[in-house]
Simulated assay, not measured.
Amino acid sequence: MVTTPQPTKVIYPDCDGNPISDNTRQFRWIVVIKENLEILFDDDPNVFVAGDLLWYPQEGNNKIRQAPDVMVAIGRPKGDRGSYKQWEEGNIAPQVVFEILSPGNRLKEMAKKEKFYDCYGVEEYYIFDPDRLDFNGWLRDEAGSLEVIEQPENWTSPRLGIRFELQDEQFTIYRPDGRPFLTPTELAKQAEQQRLEAEQQRLEAEQQRQRAESAEARLRELEARLRELEGDRHRDE
């Protein structure tokens, strides 16, 4: 009897063995972009944001993979994943990816990444070098290829609505409402300040209510006293 060999099960590792970042500056920018995008799309259950997550675009091939520093998959539900297996995600490729450069990145490596993202359907690809303050972007054109964005230093992402600004040796990312992306520490301080301001407003409103109630009670007392005096005057007549 001829035994048909069983196909070997393909394992898709959740880790590629590479560190998420080479230094604190690179890591800080990865966190800032990833966390602010999470906040921006917090109310949309069908926007998945991830940092340093392995993306496998082809079922059956665990060699073709990439781990963007930050990626956004619009149309996919939030939730934890060990990796992004595209065939399990409605065959939806991440539309937007970010790479934050470090001194260890090489031109050949970045060229391979750009080729991968172009080949597998990324619509917007952004690279920021925090050491050189250099920002570049690519946008998929009508012909279906990623093309260089000519003026990325003042550019708004078509997919995300966020705006990038590079001027006066400072790189800033703005939300659609104009508020800048902040570090988690800055966000925590901002939230605490807003809490304190809200509490102050509550106390002021409570004090105003108490003053109004006190004034109303005093008015009632005066009106009652006037009625008493009016009654006394009539009796005296």
Results as ranks from 00 to 15, higher is better:
A50N: 01
K9T: 09
T3R: 07
R28S: 14
T183Y: 07
L146T: 07
D42H: 09
M110A: 05
K108L: 07
A217K: 12
V72T: 04
I92W: 03
E89A: 13
E124S: 06
D43Y: 10
V32M: 12
N91I: 02
R227A: 12
I39S: 13
I39W: 09
E197L: 15
R28I: 00
Y120G: 00
N62K: 04
Y174I: 03
Q6P: 07
L219A: 13
R225Q: 15
M1R: 07
L182Y: 06
L203A: 09
D141V: 04
A67M: 02
E88D: 13
Y120R: 00
R211S: 02
N154T: 06
L54W: 03
N62D: 10
N18D: 04
K115E: 12
S145C: 08
K115G: 02
F27I: 05
R179F: 14
L37W: 05
E216W: 05
G51S: 14
R65T: 07
V47A: 05
E237H: 09
S21P: 05
K63L: 13
F41H: 08
P158N: 10
Q190L: 15
Q207C: 01
D42E: 14
E150W: 02
N36D: 11
E237A: 08
L160H: 03
E165Y: 06
S157Q: 08
T185L: 15
T185V: 15
G90H: 06
N105Y: 00
H234E: 14
L160G: 01
Q201I: 09
A93E: 04
F48V: 01
S102W: 04
L222K: 12
L203Q: 14
E223W: 02
E199G: 11
I92K: 10
P13Y: 01
T172N: 11
N91Y: 12
E197A: 14
G144K: 03
R218L: 13
N105V: 01
S145T: 09
R159N: 10
Q210H: 03
G90R: 05
Q95D: 04
I64N: 05
R106F: 04
T183H: 09
P5K: 11
F98K: 00
I149A: 08
Y84S: 01
D52S: 13
P45K: 06
F135N: 03
P152H: 08
L139A: 07
S145H: 14
E197Q: 14
P57M: 08
E199I: 13
P45S: 10
V32Y: 00
G161V: 12
L219H: 07
N62I: 00
Q194D: 12
T3S: 08
L219W: 11
I173Y: 04
E114T: 14
G79V: 03
A198N: 10
V2G: 00
V97W: 03
L101W: 05
D177I: 09
F171A: 05
A73R: 03
P158D: 09
E124T: 06
P5V: 14
E199P: 04
Q194K: 15
A217V: 10
A93Q: 08
W155Y: 15
Y56I: 00
L101V: 08
G161P: 12
L229K: 15
I20M: 12
